[in-house]
Design a protein around this nucleic acid. Structure first.
Length: 337
DNA sequence: TCTCCACCGGAATGCTTGGATG
DNA sequence: CATCCAAGCATTCCGGTGGAGA
């Protein structure tokens, strides 16, 4: 059944990309000064999740590597490394400059100084989910470092620029911006066919089943590949030699559920209590959530802290908040929707 | 239409943790 | 071993927002 599991992971970078020629060319052009020993243009990639932004940025940088012999590259997920310190640390890590920097007792500015002193090979950094940074002024500092080329990835252009302070905004308005749309059904099909060809044994899945997956993924390539992976795992466990309609329809909620479960596993016990209260209810006002939480745990946190939990939960799409003021109600996010 | 107030989320502050340093 | 420092988390305070109800 599964021939090469790597192809079914979403970090996998295909050797050829499907239906993103224009976007790849724009990014490649922005990076092209690097082949002449200069630094590339700062480039933004905007678009919904699963539209190929991360994949294309890695793909373009890998191609650049073929032309530029000495090139340093670092991928930073700003969701995980959301503070100024962590972002800079991760960037220094990409050029092996972190050996004597320690999480504690190292003043902030040492990291930036270290980066400014860097005079090695051209350095490309991909900052994914850049809208998750809590201090965007680190972008201003990074922008001013010569020989550093930034690729910045976010969902929505307007929302990202609204977060910038004027200094950051004025520097970055002139940069290249590439917009991605969700994949159409036939484009998702092409992506899936590619993964099937390299990842699965031949003849295990037909076009109708691919349509079924692409349809359920609603334009999101990451979701589509996740469903394919889960379905193949199921079939492999069952010893089946083809992917049936039933296997796939069972894999669809499971693929979504596995993302959810990963997020739930990261919650603290208090956060999980809040989540379970909402999950086991039929929509609750903030006050009711807090009262139930207070009754449920020993040594409860304050209301303000629970509000922070709630914003984290909705950030992870575990709960859904409707209403903005007194009409605010929290629902569990429906895994099937 | 006006006022009230539940709710949101930013900012300042304090506590704990844990490695570095003398 | 005592001290220092920054991260990370919680708490306190509070101004802004926008439905609900008069």
């Amino acid at each position: 059944m599964i021939q090469d599991a790597r192809v079914l992971q979403d970090e996998f970078i295909p050797s050829e990309v499907q239906h993103r020629d224009a976007e790849v060319n724009e990014l490649t052009n922005a990076l092209s000064p690097i082949t002449h020993g200069r630094s590339g243009d700062t480039t933004f990639l905007f678009g919904p999740s699963g539209a190929g932004k991360t994949c294309i940025s890695r793909f373009a940088v890998e191609r650049l590597r073929e032309e530029v012999l000495t090139l340093n590259v670092q991928y930073v997920n700003c969701w995980e490394d959301y503070s100024r310190f962590r972002t800079l640390y991760r960037i220094l890590d990409g050029i092996n400059e972190t050996l004597d920097i320690h999480r504690q007792s190292t003043p902030h500015d040492v990291l930036l100084d270290r980066l400014r002193e860097y005079d090695g090979a051209p350095y490309v950094i991909i900052l994914d989910e850049v809208d998750q940074l809590d201090e965007t002024d680190v972008l201003y500092d990074l922008y001013r470092i010569p020989d550093l080329t930034m690729i910045l990835i976010a969902n929505r252009e307007e929302e990202l620029f609204a977060e910038f302070d004027s200094r950051v905004r004025s520097r970055l308005t002139s940069s290249t911006r590439v917009h991605f749309d969700s994949y159409h059904l036939d484009e998702l099909m092409a992506i899936l066919e590619d993964r099937v060809r390299w990842g699965l044994e031949s003849g295990v899945i037909d076009d109708d089943r691919l349509v079924q997956i692409a349809d359920a993924a609603a334009g999101d390539a990451r979701v589509a590949i996740g469903i394919l992976r889960r379905a193949a795992e199921r079939a492999q466990e069952a010893g089946a030699n083809e992917l049936t309609e039933t296997t796939i329809s069972e894999a669809i909620p499971e693929a979504r559920e596995s993302v959810r479960q990963r997020n739930i596993d990261q919650l603290t016990p208090d956060q999980r209590a809040v989540y379970e209260i909402i999950r086991d209810s039929d929509g609750l006002a903030p006050k009711a959530v807090y009262e139930r939480y207070r009754d449920r745990v020993e040594d409860p946190r304050t209301m303000r802290t629970v509000r922070k939990y709630l914003s984290k939960l909705s950030h992870y799409n575990l709960v859904d908040a409707s209403g903005t003021s007194r009409d605010r109600v929290y629902h569990a996010d429906d895994p099937l929707s």
